[in-house]
Design a protein around this nucleic acid. Sequence first.
DNA 1: CTGAAAGCGCTTACAG
DNA 2: CTGAAAGCGCTTACAG
Lengths: 345, 345
Amino acid sequence: MAVTLKDISRETGINLCSVSQVLNDHPRAQSLRPETRQLILETASRLGYSKNQMAAAIGKKHSNVLAFVHSDMGTVEYTGRIQNGVIEAAGERGYTLIVHHIGDSPEALLRKLTGWRVAGVIFHVSQLRQIEPLAELLDHEKIPYGTVNLSNPDGIGVTTDDAAGVMESVRYLKESGHRKIVYLYTGKSEVIPDIEYKIRRISGFESGIRKIYPEETPYLQRIDYSRSHDLKYMESVLSDLLKNQVDGVICESDVLASALNNIAFFKGYHVPEVFSLIGFGGSMISETTYPMLSSVVQDFEKMGKIVTDSIIDAIEKKKGKKIQNQLLSVSLQIRHSSIQRKKQS
Amino acid sequence: MAVTLKDISRETGINLCSVSQVLNDHPRAQSLRPETRQLILETASRLGYSKNQMAAAIGKKHSNVLAFVHSDMGTVEYTGRIQNGVIEAAGERGYTLIVHHIGDSPEALLRKLTGWRVAGVIFHVSQLRQIEPLAELLDHEKIPYGTVNLSNPDGIGVTTDDAAGVMESVRYLKESGHRKIVYLYTGKSEVIPDIEYKIRRISGFESGIRKIYPEETPYLQRIDYSRSHDLKYMESVLSDLLKNQVDGVICESDVLASALNNIAFFKGYHVPEVFSLIGFGGSMISETTYPMLSSVVQDFEKMGKIVTDSIIDAIEKKKGKKIQNQLLSVSLQIRHSSIQRKKQS
DNA sequence: CTGAAAGCGCTTACAG
DNA sequence: CTGAAAGCGCTTACAG
């Protein structure tokens, strides 16, 4: 059926293991005569040889497959972009990627992963505790793993520096003459959200205000996410903002910013005249609203690439690299939903 | 390291191949004493056995891996949703999924796929000719493949019935009192687009008009996509629409509908009062614009599931199933960007 | 009905 | 420096 090493060996009359070595660029292959190597390479390509990766994996007792495991969370746009980065990095270093949902029981998933003897796994979930049981099992099997857009204490993890992004937004608003700014986030109850990125963004806002508007106390407004399509509810949110003479709004996400933008429009107030609006993420939505949203853009592809590279380093035991959480900088992209305010005289 | 069949065999004192058979639920395992089977099952789970899929694949001479191959096209949202459907179907039937970009040369990609001895491949690309060279190679290797959101003549392919969706939109507009409707699509030049879904949607509009507005000739308007963020250009598109007294607009995509909605807002015209607007896709964007877009919604997950199931049927030679292109129905979801018009007296 | 054996396509440790 | 051999973890055809 498919052409094998044995076929090449028979065809060329060269020992099978020499063939293997040449095809794998093994150092020992250097000792063969150049023309022999040439012959092997040629007939391999002539015959359309492609190494059976599974046989190779079982022969060398470890595979080069990585797993990308994600939960159904947030935007599939972000998950997709992260995955694209992961694929790219994996491909560049000769690994293939299998993908799974984190739906199953940890044990079932672990079975699937170990069934393929995965060399490493990349997680995209919103809370560390979603992967905790699995992570323990992976540790036990000594399979390296990492998280993206979620930090992984003492492990491999890549996040964007969301706090800095929010702080930069605060600074930008200050510099463009805003006097009263608010941070909007979503959550189900009054209790502090336990999603990491929410916490990071909130704390970025709080320290931003303390630093840049030292005379103010941070003004945060929680939105009940389940009601963010509820007209009456959103109207009340809006009128609160107006009542408080807010002139700058930073939102936890582009979707939230878009919802606020819409309700304002609906009530006859136009962004950015009524207040400046800044979203978070740099998603497609930030470019399809009117006006286009200023937004803190995150490089999801890069996050994916970096965790993947770190995991592969760990697999290949590059000891030079220190395993630790990495923070990627974000950039505030100014579009049309925010403007310079006149200084009040 | 990892526990193997041999370990279980040693531990239980039972012949290795009996162990294999029991663990695989092979018919022959039925002939063993129940307590023997029980013992095997128990110690397997006690030892944390997970079958080495690669060894299994090379033993049985075919693998159960499927590949999802996509190009960087359109929204990553759609690609992601399709992939989710693919993963689900694959998982249910015991296949694992590897994913690749169709970036490389066809030969390089084929090498990667055959390297894993993939049993089948799912393509998500916008034009058949993007996969043509690869498809030929796959045919030659007798590896079944299918396309999603793109029909595959004489092969496995799943598309949504976009023509019907547009036609339904036309009918809906007629029934809600609209008199003059237009279809907006994007394209680079005057030449007919060669992207299948564009053609399907256009022809759906044309036949819809012929059937439902027999006195009218289909009014189509092409938008230069590269200029869809160009204010002046979009203004001219809008004023054309107004000049022609259009009261219903069907757009090729949600993104396009959103762009039109925005420019109208900018010029002081409000959808749906100025005209009804219908998008296509049912993407996240259709829910974040203001007003929320009526849209023809496509079930991307289902498309993914169906191709995957069909491919697996082909792999497993379920002959009952006929290989052919499948058409999924779509549904027009009415939201706030379209309204009932008063009958003119 | 059961068990011992050969084979899948590789890799690598081990003699010459 | 080279070659013949054993081994990886499975599956399955083949004798008893």
